[in-house]
């Protein structure tokens, strides 16, 4: 006997809110991306727990796809951040916005 499902879900929720905090509060594009990774990971934890609870492999299959999406998102996201950095010399989301505000392409 391991733990009840709810404990796993609570752990997942905790991880998710940590990731959300990272995304919302850190003024750094790279850290925002990192926060998104944490949130995806939290979802994966919840899926694996649910897979165990219902004795079905569906949940584990979903985790495979989560991994694929995470890899995609990171590669595109990091490339985009690189572009932003080349243009603005900064990875601050506010700085990017301010430069866009000033008109045209920074």
């Amino acid at each position: 006997m391991i733990v009840p499902l709810n404990h796993i879900l609570l752990l997942s929720g905790l991880l998710f809110s940590l990731g959300m905090f990272c995304t919302l509060a850190r003024r750094n594009l790279i850290m925002m991306l990192l926060g998104i990774e944490i949130m995806l990971n939290a979802a994966a934890v919840a899926f694996v727990g649910a897979s165990l609870h219902w004795q079905q492999m569906e949940g584990q299959a979903i985790v495979i796809f989560i991994l694929a999406v995470a890899a995609t998102e990171v590669s595109i996201g990091l490339a985009a951040i690189l572009v932003v950095y080349r243009r603005t010399d900064s990875v601050d989301p506010a700085m990017e916005a301010a430069l866009w505000e000033k008109g045209g392409r920074p």
Binding site: M1, L10, G13, S17, L18
Partner: peptide, 25 residues
Amino acid sequence: ICAGFLAVSSVLVGGNPEGWTPMPA
């Protein structure tokens, strides 16, 4: 917002009675 999310998800998760029985390995 994060605290709000945590509270909401905890309440929702805790409200599920069948999730409180331990699972077999």
